[in-house]
Amino acid sequence: MECPVHEVKRVSVMTVKGRVDSDTAPKLEDKLKKLVDNEKTQIVLDLKDVEYMSSAGLRAMVSTLKAVKRINGDLRLCTPSPRVAEVLRLAGLTSIFNIYPSQNDAVGSF
């Protein structure tokens, strides 16, 4: 799993690639936490290259969402694959996360 970050305007865009499971989710959560610790509170998580995500990945995203919400930020998602969209929906998270059909839409929403 890789999750490089680039900045677009004042938004941090993290592009997650590969498999997010109990082995790799701690790395994702750690990188997201570093962004929040550095006061990057407008975050977009681009999920188009995520081939697989278990509940461990969802937990990392929810934990970050809670942290940024507390400091008036937001973690927004874009382009989940059908498989990732299914686990988000089953977990009831589609009503908690703002999810956009493109990275541009997600960045532009801030």
């Binding site: 278990s54 509940s55 969802l58 929810v62 977990a91 908690i96």
Partner: peptide, 22 residues
């Protein structure tokens, strides 16, 4: 409980829930 506000979204028990649903 899936219809909860973000503050209460603990994600605990989700793994077992997925097993049952899938």
């Amino acid at each position: 409980s899936l219809d909860r506000p973000i503050e209460d979204a603990a994600i605990g028990g989700l793994g077992v829930f997925f097993m049952r649903k899938m």
